[in-house]
């Protein structure tokens, strides 16, 4: 009977991934059929390029220790949003003063728009994310050491 054949298939856990992947294919096709999707005009944290700035492509304005203007969801919840973006450490200030081509390094160095998002306005994401790393590594380390 077809029902018992289906149930035999799903009761074997080796087929589980195949089942899930099949479902993903179906939904992906559904998504393709529902294209084109609208792209909302007013995005959070939009990118803006300021050619010629030493901080390019991450120059979001604002002199150090002032508030840069960034679009966050709830400005009232993070009153100091924008300070991190505008801040330059002495090292990154030095780099910014002397070359035009180290924008990424300067912004990745403490301070900058991504630090703002990752640590400040969307900090909870990073808490969860680093916990995932912690847990996954815990599993790997436990399995690695078990019995040795």
């Amino acid at each position: 009977m077809i029902i018992s054949r289906i149930s035999r298939f799903i009761s074997n856990f080796d087929n589980l991934l195949a089942l899930f992947a099949g479902a993903c294919v179906v939904i992906a096709v559904l998504l393709i059929l529902s294209l084109p999707l609208p792209y909302a005009e007013n995005q959070l944290y939009p990118k803006s390029l300021n050619a010629g700035s030493p901080l390019n492509p991450y120059d979001r304005g604002g002199p150090p220790f002032t508030q840069a203007d960034i679009v966050v969801q709830y400005p009232e919840n993070s009153p100091y949003a924008g300070y991190v973006t505008a801040y330059l450490t002495p090292l990154s200030g030095f780099m910014a003063a002397h070359t035009l081509y180290l924008g990424t390094t300067i912004v990745a160095h403490p301070g900058g728009i991504l630090d703002e998002i990752l640590y400040n306005t969307r900090g909870l994401d990073t808490v969860v994310e680093s916990t995932i790393l912690f847990i996954a590594f815990g599993i790997a380390a436990f399995l690695f050491r078990k019995g040795s």
């Binding site: 009761s11 087929n15 939904i27 998504l31 529902s34 999707l37």
Partner: peptide
Amino acid sequence: PFAVKAFLVLGVMGEGMAPFYAAKA
């Protein structure tokens, strides 16, 4: 869009619900 919602549900099923059949057992 509806398909996006379906995608989200599918993801959650993958994380928890789908394995109910066999692997979880």
